[in-house]
């Protein structure tokens, strides 16, 4: 479980030097094996990605002539208040996404890692993962019902326990709509984080806890000084994963609020979709998409570098 993609692959212990004289058939084997996958990937991911970057420098409505626009589209990103709102919302979302579902998962993983019958543990981890099995489109519809202002479960529940003062148009109030949708995202992701973190906690060497106990560490200290360092790789992974997913968020917003009211729940992906396919500002949409790709790639690079640098020697 300790190989890192970014690491030199010779660490994996499988290198061609161990092979003796190889036949020609054996030499072309990697190309035969990896070739088809890479070809599809190149045609349907790498090329379109390059195409998007290119389109970002043009003014194009999706039909008719394209005119070179230089950096105009990129300049527009920072002057267009709706796109700025979308970027700001996405940053808020990304920060929350690295905190909320991960903390929920961490708490539950620590609780589940305590002495429990394995069946009970499996039951809870299964239940927590269940939302992740649903399509986000399905989750969006379910929570659209929960949040319905007139007959939704949340307002009905609040009303029935005498808290009708707390009833809200959850998706209609610009100041809370984004957070209402974010809660659904956390709901959908915390189970995934939990399964990763639970496995990691269970892999922490038990003798480390014993040693800590001998030093008189309480549960809290053990958590900070044994558990957290022991699962740092996995923690790093889930944080990076939720952050990257945060910049891809589309389905939930698109279905639950459509970016509204008054564009206040737009995120980058919905802005790209709207500009490209509704407003027919294809060049501008491409520029926003390109910027988003650069943000995520930078984020991932920084995170992986950081993880590499801080990884313990014995990795």
């Amino acid at each position: 479980m300790n190989d890192q993609a970014i690491q030199d692959r010779s660490d994996d212990g499988i290198v061609e030097t161990q092979a003796g004289p190889r036949s020609r058939a054996d030499r072309i084997l990697p190309y035969v094996f990896a070739g088809p996958a890479f070809a599809i990937y190149a045609v349907l991911v790498i090329l379109p990605l390059g195409h998007t970057f290119l389109l970002g420098f043009y003014d194009w409505s999706g039909a008719g002539p394209m005119t070179f626009a230089g950096l105009d589209n990129y300049i527009k990103i920072f002057t267009d208040p709706i796109t700025r709102t979308a970027i700001a919302n996405n940053l808020i979302w990304a920060v929350l996404a690295t905190i909320v579902p991960v903390s929920m998962a961490l708490l539950l993983a620590v609780l589940l890692a305590t002495h429990l019958p394995p069946g009970v543990r499996l039951f809870f981890s299964t239940v927590y993962y269940l939302p992740a099995v649903l399509a986000l489109a399905v989750s969006a519809i379910i929570w659209g019902w929960v949040y319905n202002p007139a007959w939704g479960a949340l307002n009905t529940f609040l009303g029935s326990i005498g808290l009708s003062g707390l009833e809200q148009p959850w998706l209609g109030d610009p100041s809370i709509a984004l957070y209402s949708v974010f809660l659904v995202s956390s709901w959908a992701y915390f189970g995934f984080c939990l399964i990763i973190l639970l496995a990691a906690i269970q892999n922490v060497d038990p003798s480390l806890y014993d040693a800590a106990k001998l030093d008189g560490a309480n549960a809290w200290t053990q958590f900070w000084h044994v558990t957290i360092p022991g699962i740092r790789n996995e923690l790093n992974f889930v944080v990076l994963y939720t952050a990257i997913e945060a910049f891809r968020v589309f389905d939930l917003i698109f279905i639950m609020t459509g970016g509204g009211p008054f564009y206040q729940t737009e995120v980058i992906a919905t802005a790209v979709y709207r500009e490209a396919f509704i407003e027919h500002e294809v060049g501008y949409a491409s520029a926003i998409a390109s910027l988003m790709t650069l943000i995520i790639a930078t984020l991932a690079t920084v995170a992986l570098r950081w993880r590499e640098r801080t990884a313990p020697e014995n990795q």
């Binding site: 990937y41 991911v45 090329l47 379109p48 389109l55 891809r248 294809v282 998409a289 995520i296």
Partner: peptide, 24 residues
């Protein structure tokens, strides 16, 4: 190189592909 390109594929948001994919 191929592996590196695939690695970054994990971070590519689909929104960055959909415009050329749709038009092509």
């Amino acid at each position: 190189v191929a592996f590196f390109l695939l690695l970054y594929g994990l971070t590519v948001p689909f929104q960055a592909l959909m415009i050329p994919l749709f038009y092509n």
